[in-house]
Simulated assay, not measured.
Amino acid sequence: MGIAERKERVREEMKQMITTAAMKMFLEEGYAKTSIRNIADSIEYSPGTIYLYYKDKDELLYEVQRQAYGKLLEAFKAGAVSKDPLERLEQLGKLYVAFGLDNPELYDLMFIIRAPMNVDEKLHQSNGGDTFAFLVQCLEECMKGNLLIFKDIQLAALQIWSMVHGLVSLNLRCRLKIMVPVDEDIRFTLFRAVEEYLEAIRA
């Protein structure tokens, strides 16, 4: 391994150490209460070291969010495998809901906390793009087969994403308690809501 390759490996290892520590603190302490100094202390480096890799906490949050979207995409690829596009769309919806239920703090960082303000707008647009594209690709197959009522694929993707996001967000903010029987598992209820919605939008 040459000097350049070794330096790059060290750089990537340091960035991974920083983002791992940042994600842990964002999840445990909350984004607002976490500072660059806190993160630096946790990995036993100076704040200046972190600034060599990330210009501020917003850029670090963006990177943590990017990694979280990667985890969601991995879940999609592993679980949404049906050859039937409608069945795969249902799998996607349930996987999304399950991800939010199983990772509430991480979901909050990804979708509910304010977007990083000091990150380039082009980066904002690309963050999570592969995950959204997975949904769009599934919808393209559905719409080519005239399986859904939608005519505009972007509006279809927006509606479906908004529906599952709404279910997860309402649950995270404890707004579904009045609607869900106390003896009923919330996961069962939200999965049933996904099934009913997808049935309603079939052509």
Rank of each mutant, 00 (worst) to 15 (best):
N127A: 15
M143I: 07
L60G: 08
A193E: 09
L92K: 05
A115V: 09
K55M: 03
L148R: 10
Q16H: 07
K24T: 11
G79C: 05
A133Q: 13
S35W: 02
K15W: 00
G100E: 07
T19R: 10
F76Y: 15
Y51N: 13
Q154T: 10
M1N: 09
V64R: 01
L172V: 03
S162L: 05
I153A: 04
G128M: 03
K144T: 05
Y53V: 02
Y51L: 10
I36N: 06
Y54M: 05
C138W: 03
T131D: 01
D41Q: 13
A32L: 09
L170M: 09
E29D: 14
R11K: 13
L147V: 05
A68P: 03
A21P: 14
L61N: 00
E63N: 06
L73Q: 04
R66K: 15
L109M: 07
A80N: 07
C138N: 11
A78I: 03
K151T: 09
F111T: 12
V136N: 10
E141Y: 14
L190Q: 02
I153G: 08
K77L: 12
M163Y: 14
A21K: 08
E184P: 00
E5R: 10
A203H: 15
G129P: 01
M163S: 10
M14W: 00
L139D: 03
R192S: 10
E12F: 04
R114S: 07
D108C: 13
E5Y: 11
M163E: 06
K77R: 14
E90K: 13
L27T: 12
V81W: 02
Y69E: 15
R202S: 04
Y96C: 06
L158I: 13
E12S: 05
E105K: 15
R114Y: 12
L61P: 07
I36E: 10
E8T: 01
K151N: 05
V81P: 01
L176G: 06
E121M: 11
E87Q: 15
K55P: 12
N118Q: 09
M143F: 12
D102L: 14
E140F: 15
P181A: 14
A4Q: 15
L106G: 01
T189H: 02
V136T: 13
V136L: 14
S82G: 08
M14E: 03
A21W: 01
V164I: 11
F191S: 07
L101K: 09
F76V: 02
L158A: 14
A157L: 04
L135C: 10
N118G: 14
E63P: 04
K71A: 00
D41I: 00
R9L: 09
K144C: 01
E141Q: 15
I3A: 01
V168K: 03
R175D: 04
I113W: 01
